[in-house]
């Protein structure tokens, strides 16, 4: 790795202030993404600020109203092991457990998880290949290169990368809020607006400004949360990023869907919420596969395949059907 300085933050206000005035400084918590990026020279911060010692940011709070608030420094494994999380929001526990490995989940923080950068092989290559996300203006190697793992929704000619977080997909389905402390104080960003589409500025992954520190993730109680499932499809059985994943939660009236929450992973630069499908699914029977398929198709009119990933458009719809069916078994 390149040489850098390391210091430690003891309170959030100072951390925010330091990063606000220092464009060469990056926060480091678990480090499981940042250190890899630095080794591949896709991130070259001059200074790291260790935020692991910020007080009161590692909690998992099961709120009396049925909601959940998770400190940004809580580790993935602790959140996944929390009985409150598992009982109230099984899809959050599943999204965490299907991610990475046991070792990485012990290290990685919740805030860092949703900050993960894309796994696009061109972006990550040590050799600094043409990539607008890595070097704006250098072009997108994946657009006409190898793009089986890339986006089918919301991509631009400048970038076809996908977001790798599993957790963010579950949070998007639940309309979670990301609590951010910045130079003007604390604010709440809906997770569905936290990650950006690439457009002409793919170097920006999310809505954070310099100095912004994620302090927590807030998940309100949802009636679709208990009958929920996170389904992750990948080439091998474990320890791999999603080819396509779906977070599904439903409220049921008999066998028919009263309301649904759906988001996809592995298909876009951000967790991809299927709002049109959610609307179309109301009143559809879980046992009527054809009706499920046509309701889901409402969200796929805007899907656009790249050279090697057309299969994802069909796969994603099948994954959603399956996720709904499994969620339905949990009522």
């Amino acid at each position: 790795m390149h040489p850098f300085a390391l210091s430690r933050a003891d309170d959030p206000a100072t951390a925010v202030a330091i990063q606000t005035r220092d464009p060469g400084l990056a926060f480091i918590a678990g480090g499981t993404d940042l250190i890899g990026l630095m080794k591949d020279r896709a991130a070259l911060p001059e200074r790291l600020l260790d935020i692991n010692h910020l007080p009161g940011m590692s909690y998992i709070e099961a709120r009396a109203d049925g909601g959940l608030r998770i400190g940004a420094l809580a580790r993935m494994s602790d959140v996944a092991a929390s009985l409150a999380v598992r009982e109230r929001f099984p899809l959050i526990a599943e999204a965490l457990l299907f991610a990475a490995s046991g070792q990485l989940r012990n290290m990685a923080s919740i805030g860092g998880n949703i900050m993960q950068r894309t796994r696009c092989a061109y972006f990550r290559d040590e050799d600094d290949l043409p990539c607008n996300k890595r070097r704006p203006g250098s072009g997108c190697s994946a657009r006409h290169g190898l793009n089986r793992n890339h986006a089918i929704f919301g991509w631009s000619d400048a970038c076809v990368a996908t977001n790798p977080s599993d957790l963010a997909v579950a949070l998007a389905a639940l309309d979670a809020q990301v609590i951010v402390r910045g130079r003007t104080g604390e604010r709440s960003i809906p997770i569905t607006e936290f990650h950006r589409l690439p457009g002409d500025t793919p170097e920006r992954d999310n809505a954070l400004d310099r100095g912004d520190l994620i302090v927590a993730v807030d998940v309100a109680a949802r009636r679709e949360a208990r009958a929920s499932h996170y389904l992750k499809v990948r080439d091998r059985q474990s320890f791999e990023f999603a080819l396509v994943s779906a977070a599904a939660g439903i409220a049921i009236d008999g066998r028919s869907i009263a309301s649904a929450r759906l988001a996809l992973g592995g298909v876009a630069h951000k967790p991809w919420r299927l709002r049109a499908a959610e609307t179309a699914l109301r009143g559809v029977s879980l046992d009527d596969r054809d009706a499920l398929r046509s309701a889901i198709a409402a969200s796929f009119a805007e899907a656009r395949a790249l050279a090697h990933n057309a299969f994802k458009i069909e796969l994603a719809q099948r994954v959603v059907v399956r996720a709904l069916q499994v969620a339905g078994e949990r009522t």
């Binding site: 290559d125 290169g145 320890f239």
Partner: peptide
């Protein structure tokens, strides 16, 4: 990569070998 003429998936997350599972 057909244009760059190079192996692209040069790591264990890109080159998939079986896991225990």
């Amino acid at each position: 990569d057909p244009t760059l003429g190079r192996f692209l998936n040069r790591n264990y997350s890109g080159y998939l070998v079986p896991t225990n599972a």
